[in-house]
Amino acid sequence: MHKTGNVLNYLPKRSQPRAKKALHDIRQAETREDARKEFDVLVGTYEEKYPKTVACPVKDRDELLTSYDFPAQHWQSIRTSNPIESAFATIRHRTKRTKGCLSRDGMLHMMFKLGQYAEKRWRKLRGSAHLADVIEGVDFINGIKPSIQNQAAA
């Protein structure tokens, strides 16, 4: 999400909607290969006229496509910053109002307790059954866990 904003900042306003669609097509591709093809389209379209626009995502190409190494059920959470920002909304709201009223330790304690309270309303991660596989380092291919037979053949 932040990379999209950075890329669009290098473009004139009239070109931004088309580039934004191209960036979304990369992010929403079904497979890593499809994403690479969409990436090449973006580079081909903007490289000549706006080299800074494509330099930004090209240097981070592999990192931007990392989500394909995780279970497909996790992609929605990986591709957004919303869970992080939502988790800290309660804390941010309260700490703005109590600025300067507490010691550092008191503020940390209050933030911890607010986080615990907010945690009660959090939804479970989609595909939580795959978390053990992710922790063990299982290589997912385009969001799909390879079967034992496929691993033996590779």
Results as ranks from 00 to 15, higher is better:
G5N: 13
N6E: 11
K13R: 08
R14Y: 10
S15C: 10
S15T: 08
Q16Y: 03
R18G: 05
K20T: 09
K20N: 11
K21E: 15
L23I: 14
H24G: 12
D25I: 07
R27M: 14
Q28N: 14
A29H: 10
A35G: 13
K37T: 11
K37Q: 11
V41R: 12
V43A: 11
E47A: 15
K49S: 06
T53Y: 05
V54D: 04
A55C: 04
A55V: 07
V58E: 15
D60G: 09
R61T: 03
D62N: 14
L65I: 01
S67F: 11
S67G: 00
A72Y: 00
A72K: 09
Q73S: 13
Q73M: 00
H74Q: 06
Q76Y: 04
I78D: 01
S81W: 10
N82W: 02
N82I: 05
I84P: 03
A87D: 06
R92E: 04
R94T: 06
R94V: 11
R94D: 03
T95C: 11
L102E: 06
G106T: 00
F112G: 02
K113H: 09
L114N: 02
L114T: 03
L114W: 03
Q116V: 11
Q116Y: 04
Y117N: 12
Y117T: 15
A118H: 07
K120L: 07
K120A: 08
R121N: 13
W122R: 12
R123P: 09
G127C: 04
S128V: 15
A129S: 14
A129W: 08
L131F: 14
L131K: 03
V134H: 04
I135M: 11
I135F: 06
G137H: 08
D139V: 15
I141W: 14
I141F: 15
N142L: 09
P146A: 13
S147Y: 10
S147W: 06
Q149F: 00
Q149Y: 00
N150C: 05
Q151Y: 07
Q151M: 08
A152P: 00
